[in-house]
Amino acid sequence: MRGALSARDLALVAVFAALIVVLGEAGTLYPFGAVVPITAQTLGVMLAGSVLGARRGLLAVGAFEVLVAAGLPLLAGGRGGLGVFTGPTAGFLLGWLPGVVVVGLIARWALRAAGTRGLIPRLLVAHTVGGVAVVYALGVPMLAVQTQVSISRALAISAVYLPGDAVKVVLASVVTAAVVRGYPRVLAQDR
């Protein structure tokens, strides 16, 4: 164990869990005007990892998912309850947990290794690997099992979300770089 969380850590964990909730509210984020609303909750998961780091990011996503499981309609579209954890897309939701850890670990490396130059490309790697690849690595097989199709078919079905994920990867990286520059204090006391 690396010691107890400070009061500020607890506050950051709670606020990022709430940030994931608010990014799922309708009308928060429209990438292409109001034509294609994407759910931005994965963006919140990526940001929790890169801004808070692996440990606090995991706690933020965990707190969010516990409240969803306990029956609060916090997922985009007002979904929630235990049913989302027994349904065919449960793997994507559960994949957020290892996903945010991987984002946090790679992003920490990116922030230490890179100066201002080369930061965004490294963050792109963090968000692609943790926020997309790891999430799909859990989500696709669980979808395949529940729907009794092959992994490749399940992947083909999931692929409709990849363009939206790509947008979120870029946005999360640009935003993290800007937040780190504009408010470096957020990384202080990081563990």
């Binding site: 607890l10 506050a11 606020v15 990022f16 940030l19 935003v175 937040v179 504009g182």
Partner: peptide
């Protein structure tokens, strides 16, 4: 997204 996240972090600081 940038001002939203920065203002959220500021709120977390006050809350902390």
């Amino acid at each position: 997204a940038v001002p939203f996240v920065i203002r959220s972090v500021r709120y977390a600081d006050r809350l902390g």
